[in-house]
Amino acid sequence: MVEAINNCLKQEMDLDKNIVVLGEDVGVDGGVFRVTEGLYEKFGKQRIIDTPLSESGIIGTAIGMATMGIRPVAEIQFQGFEYNAYHQIVQHAARLRNRTRGQFTVPMIVRLPCSGGIRALEHHGESLESIYLHIPGLKVVYPSCPYDAKGLLAAALKDEDTVLYFEPKRLYRAFREEVPEERYEVEIGKAKILREGTDITLISWGAMTFVSKDAIEEASKQNISVEHIDLRTLAPCDWDTIIKSVNKTGRAIIVHEASKTMGFGAEIATRIMENSFLSLEAPVKRVTGWDIQIPYPKLEDYYFPNKERILKEIIKTVNF
């Protein structure tokens, strides 16, 4: 996934001279995860900007640039440090278009390496997408494979709004996949049905898509046919695909890494209830992180939904 994002940035920056990258350690170092490796050498320090250490500085500056027709790709080193710039995102990036009735806009990308499972330090493994999904005016994409990572980023770079681009670090190097060399886009706001099924719909995104696949594989051995939807974009969410699927299967389960209360699963479950009530044969279930702070490495694995927890919930829901 690191290579797919890197490849996309190089390609798009070649085509669009207005794209700049800014953030901590994105230049000479190539980013702490090597996502911007080689960009500094290729595009120079005017376009690949090593900033002083300040998230609000990065996002505020990017907002200013974006209003002037520059297309900033701002990197926040870890999503858990974005809070230091949250006010800029909520008060300005999300609102500027509406406040000026379309005169000022903020077409920028904020890259947010997120999610845990890599035995990192405290604050380095967060997955708090909900706090952005609650803010009207923001788009949120969350790829789960290198192909989508490249296509969604390419689309985001053409989008007219602020796009928060979540990068699940656990998938940076978890598996390899051939990604087309040529430019392509994955439409923002379109979910992908990874696997068709008839008994239950499983909805996931990011690293949890990867984890869910194992549980679904196991379920199929027990003759449970799971339809797997990877959301890819959380805002705007592809409700049509979800509702259509649940109307067909009559059951749904949502898997996310973020803690349960007020996680995006709550919104999805409610939408299903509102739209598919008569098709439902079982309560909609969630497998999520617990309502606690993500533990340090030693206890980390207790926190995340895993194959066993997901499988158990699938079986329970199907046998309800």
């Binding site: 617990w290 309502d291 606690i292 702070q293 533990p295 030693k298 206890l299 207790y302």
Partner: peptide, 22 residues
């Protein structure tokens, strides 16, 4: 290490909901 401690220190007194999650 006591794994349950990841639930024990969020509040002065653990909430009912958290107890169930634990």
């Amino acid at each position: 290490q006591e794994p349950k401690n990841m639930f024990n220190f969020l509040y002065a007194k653990m909430t009912k909901d958290l107890e169930n999650q634990m």
